Simulated scan of single mutants.
Amino acid sequence: MSVIVDYLIIIWGFIMIGLMAIGGFFMFRKFLKRLPKEDGKSIMDWEEYYVNKTKNMWKEEEKELLDELVSPVPELFRDVAKHKIASKVGEVALMKDKTTITQDVLIEGYIIATPKRDHKFLRKKLAQKNIDTKPYEEFFQLSRDDYEQDWKRKHQK
């Protein structure tokens, strides 16, 4: 009986170490996003800036479309994903000197903000809404791996 208890304690120890490592990994990633870059602002500072700067530019239709597009994200992470995507959409809108967030700007920003694996769902959702994806093919072709680092220069090509 004590051998079984010993094994359970060992297994429980590994589970706890594993869970702590996973939590530590996510905390460390958040810490790295808070570190200031060359311009003195962190990634999260810029995200907050773009969301706040463009919050009055969103129409109800675009807010609903964004909610629909982030629906496959697990609910625990949905707010974070929505915030990141909304900040990238806002950045694109400001870069293009838009006064409102349009469907085109929303889709461009969504593509830029998300990894390539999420684009399959986006294509499916856009097809359901009868939105043509041809104008966005150049953005789909550039995966986030290639696009995220120097996206502004590549976006302007």
Rank of each mutant, 00 (worst) to 15 (best):
G24E: 14
K154H: 01
H119L: 03
I43A: 10
K82G: 07
W58S: 13
F31N: 12
R34G: 06
E38L: 12
I112V: 15
M1H: 10
I11R: 11
L69F: 09
L66C: 06
E75W: 14
F121Y: 14
R144Q: 05
M20P: 08
D145T: 14
V105L: 06
D132Y: 05
M95Q: 09
G40N: 10
P115T: 09
Y110G: 05
V73M: 09
P72S: 07
D145P: 04
Y136P: 08
F25T: 15
P135G: 02
R34W: 11
F77I: 03
T133A: 01
S87D: 04
E62S: 12
D97F: 03
N130K: 11
V89G: 02
G18P: 03
T54D: 09
K37H: 12
L142G: 00
I4V: 08
T114G: 05
L8Q: 04
V3F: 04
E108R: 10
D118N: 13
I85F: 00
I43S: 10
G109Y: 09
D6G: 12
T114P: 03
F139E: 04
K84P: 00
V73F: 11
D146V: 07
Q156I: 03
K129M: 15
Q141N: 10
S42W: 10
F77K: 09
Q149S: 04
S71F: 10
G24H: 11
D118Y: 11
K157P: 01
E38M: 09
Q149G: 06
L35S: 01
Q128N: 14
F140Q: 01
